[in-house]
């Protein structure tokens, strides 16, 4: 069974229909990159997957949980889905370590000591062992985003969602964050990544999905999609982003 299954997903804000009937399946261990012009609905789609946006219509099933079913405990579903935001959204009043241990401790997943040990291990894997006691405001953007990834991983999710994780970063910071994501992909994490980093998509993705106007226009293996785009929309988009 597919890890993520989306059928006929619609989302409107008043009269403005942002998603116009999407269908997508993501398999276990698969890395899917979503590309497309701004305003095409990529982020909205991603946010629907953990119920930060409530779909107007359609069905989303994640790891067997049907999100549209009222009986589904959304908190349990979310524990299983890590989310990384464009603007990091670290908790500014908590230290790096506290940011990471908050959820596992509050939800009774781990004792404080266990959670702290996990947190330090995670910080080591994202290359920030020395920042455990730092406050978020003392970190650079790239460091913040790596902490945010560690925070999401602390709940041991089986799916990670990335919403333009490098868009708010200075160019020299992007590499560190992408490296962390590459490692994660290599370890077999199921990932859906909304991104403008075409290089990353090409290198890491098992599949690339091109969205425009609230619909999936084209999807396929990175090589096929980037080298042989079929739709004029994608050709036009690639021309613009690659020839900058």
């Amino acid at each position: 069974m597919a890890k993520v299954s989306v059928e006929n997903l619609h989302k409107s804000y008043g009269d403005n229909e942002v998603l116009k009937g999407l269908n997508l399946e993501v398999q276990d261990n698969e890395v899917v990159c979503m590309i497309g012009p701004s305003g095409s609905g990529k982020s909205t789609f991603l946010r629907c997957l953990n119920d930060l946006e409530v779909p107007t219509e359609g069905k989303i099933v994640i790891s067997g949980y049907d999100l549209s079913d009222k009986a589904t405990n959304i908190n349990l579903v979310r524990e299983n889905i890590g989310m990384v935001f464009q603007h990091f959204n670290l908790f500014p009043h908590l230290s790096v370590l506290q940011n990471i241990t908050l959820a596992p401790v509050q939800l009774g997943k781990q004792s404080k000591a266990e959670a702290e040990k996990t947190a330090r291990d995670l910080l080591a894997t994202v290359g920030l062992s020395d920042k455990a006691d730092a406050m978020p405001k003392s970190l650079s953007g790239g460091q913040k985003q790596r902490v945010a990834i560690a925070r999401a991983l602390a709940m041991h999710p089986s799916i990670m969602l990335f919403d333009e994780p490098t868009s708010a970063l200075d160019p020299e910071m992007v590499g560190d964050v992408l490296d962390v994501m590459k490692n994660l992909a290599a370890q077999g994490m199921t990932m859906i990544v909304v991104t403008h980093e075409m290089g990353f998509a090409k290198e890491v993705a098992d599949r690339v999905v091109f969205m425009a106007d609230g619909l999936i226009q084209e999807s396929g293996k990175p090589d096929d999609l980037f080298d042989h785009p079929k739709s004029p929309r994608l050709q036009d988009f690639l021309n613009k982003v690659i020839n900058v």
Binding site: L52, G82, F85
Partner: peptide
């Protein structure tokens, strides 16, 4: 974003 980040962790 603070509420969203917290909720996305399952809190």
């Amino acid at each position: 974003g603070q509420m969203e980040a917290a909720r996305s962790l399952g809190l």
